[in-house]
Write a protein that binds this DNA or RNA. Structure first.
Length: 433
DNA sequence: TCTGGGGTCCTAGGACCC
DNA sequence: TCTGGGGTCCTAGGACCC
């Protein structure tokens, strides 16, 4: 008794809920948030779900019906979501111990020795985040992370709030047999199909499967899932760096363009921009990169789809924006098809090492940022992303609030809400009478 | 006309070594 | 006809997550 439970706190329809924080008039209205370029639906409020709108639908296909139904659509506003997420996470970490941030809208925490105290803390945490940030949470407690995920799913289906595995199990001893195996954390589409072939169709079936057999037919990951469904903790999230948060092992910056582009100059500008953004994230986590990959692709939905990629091994690990941007752009002439209409490009940084522990040998030195990167980072923090950068003269100033480049490859974001927590000129205005 | 953007981990198989 | 047996390291690809 008294073993500490896993607590999973997960925001309800996070992006859609964020849109409501500074626009309370959106409460109780159907909202969808669209992916970059206003492409697909990525988040729906409960009201939008009730209208039968599912995730991943292309907006242009459902737009007329949705607007007819009174659905409000927003471009995704990651700046706002990231800022609200950080506030929410800090608040939760102050209430319960051992937070592991799992994604922008969910984290695991550990309960207290006394289950009663854990229950009280969960309730307090939910009220505090709702009042202090304006985001509704679903909170689930269970002896393993996998069961906490299941409780969370189940609780959200019931309308959200707080759920507990022991209570659920007590009310409905066969609850796992009522949950499709595809809903289990770690079981995706492919595994679902293969498991069904072995007559494993529910979470209950999977929990009763022989772990050794599962290991043999699948992998150690799924074996751990079986144990977790039985209440035995087997999954660790241990790459958490207490000092700098998550230290990524790979950094990718990639975008679909607002319009297709052709030719080296435009493509170079886009790739240079993404390389600099990736380098900023690299410096933020205090890493150096040893290898960089650039990829470009035409539309997979049109004839003659082509995707190419090229890599550069850097002679010395680097975090300086000039080296990284230059290396990224240098891959393009070898890859580019001068007639192709590209719709997407990206830059990936790999072979990351810690800048702090990088050892220099004679004749081998890291291409460390000589101060330029730091200045760029500071300027961009102060004046907004992409205010200043290397080599993109002439593409500035046509975007909203002069904060985006005016280039045609820039994302389409026609329904962007205000970034009220990160931009002075987009602060929420309150009038008192 | 119009279909996202990140990440992680594991496994299999090849290269190479003794 | 015969053509060892391991170990390690690396990479590509597959699977999953949100």
């Amino acid at each position: 008794m008294g073993s500490r439970l896993f607590v999973l706190a997960d925001a309800d329809s996070f992006y859609a809920s964020c849109e409501r924080v500074f626009h309370p008039q959106l409460m109780h209205r159907p909202i969808v948030v669209l992916s970059n370029n206003d492409g697909c639906v990525v988040s729906r409020s409960r009201e939008a779900k009730q209208l039968g709108i599912s995730n991943g639908l292309p907006w242009f296909k459902i737009r007329s019906q949705a607007e007819h139904d009174g659905v409000i659509a927003r471009s995704s506003n990651y700046e706002l979501y990231a800022s609200l997420s950080a506030r929410m996470m800090r608040l939760m970490a102050s209430i319960m111990p051992d937070q592991e941030i799992y994604s922008i809208d969910e984290c695991f925490l550990r309960g207290f020795q006394d289950p009663k105290r854990t229950r009280i803390a969960c309730r307090f945490m939910r009220d505090t985040v709702l009042r202090g940030i304006g985001i509704p949470l679903t909170i689930a407690t269970a002896p393993t992370r996998t069961l906490a995920k299941i409780v969370s799913h189940y609780t959200k289906h019931q309308g959200g709030g707080i759920g507990d595995w022991d209570l659920l199990k007590h009310q409905d001893p066969d609850v796992l047999d009522r949950i499709d195996v595809s809903e289990v954390w770690g079981v995706g589409r492919r595994l679902t199909r293969r498991l069904q072939g072995m007559s494993i169709t529910t979470a209950g079936d999977l929990s009763r499967a022989d772990p050794a057999l599962i290991r043999h037919h699948f992998s150690v990951l799924l074996q751990r899932t079986v144990l977790e469904l039985r209440g035995v903790p087997a999954i660790e999230l241990d790459d958490f760096d207490a000092i700098s948060g998550f230290r990524k092992q790979q950094i990718m910056c990639s975008r679909m363009f607002g319009h297709p582009i052709t030719g080296l100059p435009d493509l170079s500008a886009a790739v240079s921009t993404y390389a600099q953004q990736a380098a900023t994230r690299l410096r933020r986590q205090g890493s150096l990169t040893g290898m960089l990959t650039v990829f470009i692709a035409t539309s997979p939905y049109s004839q003659g789809y082509q995707a190419r990629s090229g890599s550069v091994i850097l002679p010395d690990p680097a975090d300086d924006p000039l080296t990284i941007a230059r290396a990224a752009v240098s891959t393009l002439p070898h890859m580019i098809d001068p007639h192709a209409r590209y719709v997407r490009a990206g830059v990936m940084l790999a072979n990351l090492t810690s800048a702090a522990s990088f050892q220099t040998f004679d004749g081998m030195d890291a291409k460390r940022d000589n101060g330029l990167g730091m200045v760029l980072d500071q300027a961009n923090r102060k004046f907004g992303l992409q205010s200043v950068g290397i080599g993109w003269a002439g593409i500035k100033g046509k975007g909203r609030s002069k904060q985006e480049t005016g280039a045609k490859w820039n994302m389409k974001r026609q329904r962007l809400s205000n970034r009220g927590t990160t931009r002075w000129d987009e602060l929420c205005v309150v009038k008192a009478r």
